[in-house]
Amino acid sequence: MRTAYEIVKAHYDANERRDMDGMLADIAPDCRWTEMDGFPCAGTYVGPQEVFKNVFLALGDIFEVYNFKLDRLLDAGSDVVGIGDYAGTHKETGKPFEARVVHVWGVADGKIRRFEQFTDTLRVAEAMK
């Protein structure tokens, strides 16, 4: 069985390839995915389809360009921490932003069960005004 670290790394590798199926593959049906309050798609979503609709599709609707670049991936057993940067350009304003971000993942029984995002929501909000 793959480790939590390997499962989360596979998600980030799929993101790098722009492979949505790969990004969703290891998200459990009961996964609680939380986007930070103040972020455009803030909230907690349960399961891969809710994450796809309310996070990935929503970001694509809001931003012309939206990227995440992983800087470091930390192995904490069943928890994994991803540290990196968001960058994007808001569709309506044309303003770009960059923001540092931390993702905290919880993995159990070979599936992603929990995700929580911590980021500088002010940088994103400034691009949207």
Rank of each mutant, 00 (worst) to 15 (best):
T89V: 15
N54V: 10
F97L: 02
E6T: 13
D13A: 10
Y5E: 07
G106K: 03
H90P: 09
V46L: 03
L57I: 15
T93A: 01
M20V: 15
K69Y: 06
Q117R: 06
G38C: 01
Y86S: 01
R17M: 13
W33G: 01
R17Q: 14
L59R: 03
I83D: 00
E126W: 13
A108H: 07
C31A: 10
I7E: 06
V124C: 02
G110F: 12
P29N: 07
C41K: 11
D13N: 10
L74N: 05
P29W: 01
L57R: 15
G43L: 11
G82K: 03
K111Q: 14
M23L: 14
R17N: 08
F39G: 04
G88S: 02
V81Q: 00
A14W: 06
L74C: 11
D79Y: 04
D75G: 01
L59A: 08
V8R: 01
R114V: 11
V107H: 01
A99K: 03
V55K: 10
H90N: 11
V101N: 00
K9P: 08
A127W: 04
F68W: 09
I62P: 07
L57G: 11
G60H: 12
N67G: 14
V46Q: 10
W105N: 02
V51Q: 03
H103F: 04
Y45S: 05
R114E: 12
D85S: 09
Q117E: 13
K129C: 07
L73R: 00
R123D: 15
Y12S: 06
I62F: 02
T121F: 05
T3G: 04
L122G: 04
P48L: 07
L73D: 02
A99V: 03
T121V: 14
L122E: 12
I27L: 12
G88I: 06
P96N: 04
E35N: 11
D79A: 01
K53Y: 12
D75H: 01
S78P: 13
G47F: 10
